[in-house]
Design a protein around this nucleic acid. Structure first.
Length: 750
DNA sequence: GTAAGGACTTAGAATGAACATA
DNA sequence: TATGTTCATTCTAAGTCCTTAC
């Protein structure tokens, strides 16, 4: 990235000790007059970044809303105000990356698993209900939809219409299935918790699923170097294919990606290949790319039978590897597949993008299960790296990946006990914060005047974390990952101070790349004490220097845990997200609204949180078109409504003229009234949908819904305003939040 | 006290399936 | 039936925070 090349210096050293020592001599001094100069320099650096870092062809995340801070009062620093959605949606533009499909999974080369797991599952009665596997779920879903269709909306052509009895029967079956599912669910939340540190007492599984071995290309698909045919060795060919498959993707145009790929590819070549292939520019992957595209196309055009066969093969894999037995309950595994080899796709300007992510062998995999369980069998001719029996952790298998050297885990699905319990605990900690948040806020406001620099920095950082829901911001190793920051790792170049801006005083302008290289841009009026402190922290520093040079997440979290057990920086995000949802729902919902309007309110409340947490998404590619289509439908419906109204008027007139005794005319009036009403309802529904979609254009609601919003708030809201919970949570979400759906009453308060 | 390692959560993109419309 | 659109699921990178080793 261009920015850090300019700004990088010793000042940007990441390690804590250095960071703390480095600026020890800067402690003194009040707000200096250099700050204006510094700001200018920071600004300059920033603008260089914007043009030079290549963001224009990446995930371009344009300015985020200013609504959150604009609405909040500088004198009430910690109050979360409702954001102005319209403001947000009109401000952002974005380009979505082109996507490319990965190599199709062909064939299954797995050792047959022992039947013990399945047998045990049956014995424990968990093969049905909530334990159905994904494909089964899908087929069930389709049945529901078909039933719905057949219940009278649009009969499918040529299909014989079912009788009322059959429809009723299907409905009963559906209800029965749902009840069964409910009965079979493991209600772990009603059981006693294990002692601290114990995650399970019995764990059995079949090990991870390995991706199929590489199948060499047919002889008619060739690679050319410098215009000449070259038959690559299988290993070199496999890596070349990874690149060829990505040719439509923007990644392959990036210098870093190309260089990393080429370097790693050459390592996989034979001596002879390495001598010959020296320049990526001279490589022609055209035929390999074409073959890949043809495969994708062919997959799209598979017949029903082929699709069915593929589905069944997949189901078999899920049945065998997708579940485990945890304390004798069948639980779904979240990611039971070993990650296949490929080229590393780091986000943002990742220095390691394009590197070869190697194929994982069983010899690299550690298995974790019960001593007394049936051990998973490694694929034929292989063995595990290690089998251990550690019930203080939740993972089933792990391996070390070669890009960052970090450990990857096979873990349970979000609907499992282990994940659910932790989730519940997380929200309980956030609720506990509610009871002491006022004291904590008062304390950090007092700390803004502390004599100690570290305390002041901590206070300002906390102010940001609390008010803006910033992430903690751990230190990162330079050159290992994309240059992104959070609160504690903010640098001078990331903020600009404005005495006056847009009619506000003491405005801080933030502009930095956060997690996943998503841009955070915000202009926030702050209280004067914070503003003055920031000016102090920025004195005599370069754009690449740390803003909080005395602070890191460790120091911050230690302080927080002394204020409340279990309190860390992250808890503020959960707390503020959940409390915002609760407040917004209260504010926005009217009991007399219809369901569509209530759902719009829910989505708006959800959106307020997503904006607060800066959860952005690239606008859907087809957004404009689909909005235009919806508008056209609205216009048509409006015309229909006008017509229906005229007809009603006419009918009323006729009924009046001929006297109200004519029952036929009265029926006609009633019918026309109903038609008008129906039209109006449909129109309203569409208009609500259009508003919702427009407001949602660039905001991802899913992340906050899944990770930050206490589900009990939503469930209680559903109960209070009589909205079926199915309207806000799909099947997967209902499974994940089963504990909350089951235990929450309408009077729940976060 | 600090760096490194480990375990876990959070995140958006990619992919696939279902559904709607022409 | 083909094609476009939406929604759900999968994938795995990138965070947080705690523990361990020195």
């Amino acid at each position: 990235m261009g920015r850090e090349k300019e700004a990088k210096g010793d000042a940007k050293t990441k390690h804590k000790s250095t960071k703390l020592k480095r600026l020890s001599d800067r402690e003194s001094a009040g707000a200096g007059e250099h700050s204006a100069e510094k700001t200018t320099s920071a600004e300059k650096t920033k603008s260089t970044k914007k043009t030079a870092n290549g963001k224009s062809h990446k995930k371009v995340k344009t300015p985020k809303t200013e609504s959150v801070e604009a609405a909040s009062s500088a004198s009430e620093p910690v109050k979360q105000e409702p954001p102005d959605d319209d403001d947000f949606t009109t401000k952002k533009k974005g380009l979505k990356r082109k996507r490319i499909k990965d190599e199709p999974v062909e064939g299954i080369s797995q050792s047959p698993a022992s039947p013990t797991l399945k047998k045990e599952n049956k014995e424990h009665g968990h093969e049905g209900g909530s334990d159905e596997d994904a494909p089964k779920k899908k087929s069930k879903k389709r049945t529901e939809k078909t039933v719905k269709k057949e219940e009278g909306e649009h009969p499918v052509a040529k299909k014989p219409k079912r009788t009322k009895e059959e429809i009723e029967e299907a409905r009963q079956l559906k209800i029965k299935k749902k009840e069964e599912e409910e009965q079979n669910r493991w209600r772990w939340w009603e059981e006693e918790k294990y002692e601290d540190g114990v995650k399970w007492k019995f764990l059995e599984h079949n090990g991870p699923y390995f991706p199929p071995e590489y199948q060499p290309l047919p002889d008619n698909v060739l690679f050319y170097y410098n215009g000449k045919k070259v038959k690559l060795s299988p290993t070199a060919e496999e890596v070349a294919l990874f690149f060829a498959q990505m040719l439509d993707h923007e990644y392959t145009t990036k210098k870093v990606f190309r260089e990393n790929f080429f370097k790693d590819w050459r390592k996989e070549m034979t001596d002879e290949e390495r001598t010959l292939i020296r320049d990526l520019e001279k490589c022609d992957f055209g035929e390999m790319h074409a073959m890949h595209k043809a495969k994708v196309e062919a997959r799209k055009n598979t017949t029903k039978e082929e699709k069915q066969a593929l589905k069944e093969a997949n189901e078999k894999i899920v049945d065998e590897y997708g579940y485990c037995l945890l304390d004798h309950h069948k639980e779904r595994i979240g990611n039971f597949k070993i990650e296949p080899p490929g080229l590393f796709r780091g986000r943002g300007e990742h220095p390691k993008q394009g590197m070869l992510k190697k194929r994982i062998q069983p010899e690299e995999v550690i298995i974790n299960c019960s001593k007394e369980s049936r051990l998973p069998v490694p694929p034929a001719g292989h063995r595990w790296k290690e089998v251990r029996h550690d019930n203080s952790v939740t993972w089933l298998a792990s391996w070390t990946e070669n890009i960052q050297g970090s450990i990857k885990y096979i873990m349970l699905n979000a609907n499992s006990k282990l994940k659910g319990e932790k989730d519940w605990e997380k929200y309980e900690v956030a609720r506990k914060l509610k009871t002491c948040v006022d004291d904590i806020r008062n304390q950090y406001l007092r700390d803004l005047k502390s004599k100690e620099m570290v305390t002041r920095q901590r206070a300002v950082a906390l102010y940001f974390i609390d008010k803006l829901a910033l992430r903690a911001g751990n230190e990162k190793e330079e050159g290992e990952t994309a240059d992104t920051v959070g609160c504690c790792s903010l640098r001078i170049e990331h903020i600009t101070l404005h005495e006056q801006l847009d009619g506000n005083e003491c405005v801080v302008e933030f502009d930095f790349l956060g997690k996943d290289s998503i841009r955070y841009y915000n202009k926030v009026p702050v209280i004067r004490k914070v503003f003055k402190n920031l000016r102090l922290f920025m004195e005599n520093k370069q754009p690449g220097d740390d803003l909080f040079d005395r602070l890191n997440t460790n120091v911050l979290n230690k302080h927080l845990s002394s204020l409340m057990a279990g309190l860390t920086a992250k808890v503020f995000r959960t707390y503020n997200a959940s409390i915002t949802l609760q407040q917004q729902l209260k504010e926005l919902t009217t009991k007399s609204d219809n369901v569509a309007e209530k759902l719009l309110s829910y989505n708006r409340a959800n959106r307020a949180v997503a904006i607060l947490c800066n959860h952005q998404r690239a606008p859907p590619k087809t957004f404009e078109q689909s909005m235009a289509n919806l508008q056209a439908k609205i216009d048509t419906r409006k015309e229909q409504l006008a017509l229906a109204k005229t007809e009603l008027k006419q009918a009323k007139k006729e009924a009046k003229n001929k006297g109200s005794s004519d029952p036929k005319l009265q029926t006609m009036v009633e019918r026309k009234k109903a038609a008008v009403k129906r039209c109006e309802e449909q129109l309203l529904k569409m208009e609500v949908q259009a508003t919702d979609r427009e407001e949602n254009k660039q905001i991802a609601l899913g992340t906050s819904k899944l990770n930050y919003l206490d589900p009990r708030i939503s469930v209680a809201w559903c109960k209070n305003v009589e909205v079926p919970v199915e309207k806000i949570y799909n099947k997967t979400q209902r499974d994940k939040f089963a504990w909350a759906i089951d235990m929450t009453e309408a009077d729940f308060e976060f």
